[in-house]
Design a protein around this nucleic acid. Structure first.
Lengths: 224, 224
DNA sequence: GCCTGTGAACCTTTTCACAGCA
DNA sequence: TGCTGTGAAAAGGTTCACAGGC
């Protein structure tokens, strides 16, 4: 994943992963303050809204370039525009959701998808009872048609919300259809070719992490 | 969150956060190999199953104590027992889910909850149309009753799947009911007292992170 | 005086490389 | 010979503290 050559337009900087992971948080905080017609925000204030400390905000934003004014703060609109651009939210990404159980439906119905750079362009399920039904205003296509339909609709981001045993096959189909970013909700380890980004959200993992700290606090009584 | 005193039973070690976050992954991988009646696993094999490298596996497991045999590997059952114990999965945690939209229902229906140390003990929603209904075999209680019902049922872990504007109030109620671990799916910054663990899962954030890397790969055409 | 931008110090995490034991 | 356990080195991330411009 190393990228050594800088673009000739000079726009590409090396932004640390940890910073990238916080940009969406800043983005949301900035949208909120912009909604309240605030024009300027300090690193202190933004830190408070984002739940991090001010030094981190300044360091993070410095990777995007220098958009603040000393003694004043950051111009909300300008910073919002810059972060939107960096996150690639200035144009819509076509998203496909595979697996329309409760989770997939929750995702399909999710508001703020359309509003913020993402557009659900295709839904897939293997269950004949679900195929052809409308979910969130879109018809469910058969899972067998992923390669054809997803590539035809220009899908670039795929969300996997299937049972774990079919997740790898779905991922393969998505990649074959030209998808190069995958968000996986299935509790399974996926392997994808280089050049495809993969992120994972795993409920059981999150709960188990909480349980670890929880059990260190409230030591279970010997009598259970 | 610092904990300096070692327990007199000698069982508590300082396990790095990054390691804790991987224990659930190892746990799942080990459950899989145990199901296939494999008795021994090497760090190489476990690394492959968990999607990390072998040095990391060995380092991580060394924090739990020394459970491997040089020249052989780790005993699957023994390691599984140790990780279960560390993760606190050896006894059931009562979990409450607040907010029964699609996401909350997905969580309530989630299999593997009961199987692996967690038991959904209470469901809450503010919508009168949902209160009293059965979801996943459990009756939905009014959100106004969180403090009473959650404490009565011994809930220690709360899952927030509500709209963002009520998430803080729900968190406060959960904490008042004795919950000290919260998993938040609402796109809102929550503040909780010290001693309460908080983890966050945010769909929009995950998508935006993907979009960042995606847009660096497929540079939007200048005319686009 | 105020608040950003950033080198430097510090801390955490990862990786390396090999000693030590079966 | 094979694989774990672990110091040491390297990389990555966070925080400090202050110079620099408004």
């Amino acid at each position: 994943m190393g990228h050594d050559s800088a673009g000739t337009d000079g726009a590409s900087r090396r932004i640390p992963e940890a910073t990238v992971a916080r940009l969406p948080i800043y983005y949301r905080a900035l949208v909120d303050v912009a909604d309240r017609d605030v024009t300027t925000v300090s690193s202190d204030r933004l830190a408070e809204l984002a739940g991090v400390n001010a030094a981190k905000v300044r360091k993070d934003l410095s990777y995007l370039g220098t958009y603040g004014t000393r003694g004043v703060g950051y111009d909300v609109k300008q910073l919002l525009a810059e972060i939107s651009r960096d996150l690639g939210l200035t144009h819509d990404w076509a998203v496909a959701i595979v697996g329309l159980g409760h989770l997939g439906q929750a995702l399909a119905d999710y508001r703020g998808f359309g509003a913020r750079g993402f557009r659900v362009a295709a839904l897939f399920d293997a269950d004949p009872a679900k195929i052809g039904r409308q979910v969130g205003g879109l018809e469910v296509s058969p899972a067998a048609s992923i390669r054809a339909v997803a590539s035809e609709r220009g899908v670039r981001i795929g969300i996997i919300a299937t049972p774990p045993h079919v997740a790898q096959a779905v991922a393969d189909d998505l990649v074959a259809a030209g998808v190069s970013s995958i968000l996986n909700f299935a509790p399974a380890l996926l392997s994808v070719p280089g050049g495809v980004s993969l992120r994972k959200v795993d409920l059981a993992v999150e709960l188990q992490i909480l349980a670890f700290y929880q059990s260190r606090r409230s030591v279970p009584a010997a009598g259970g």
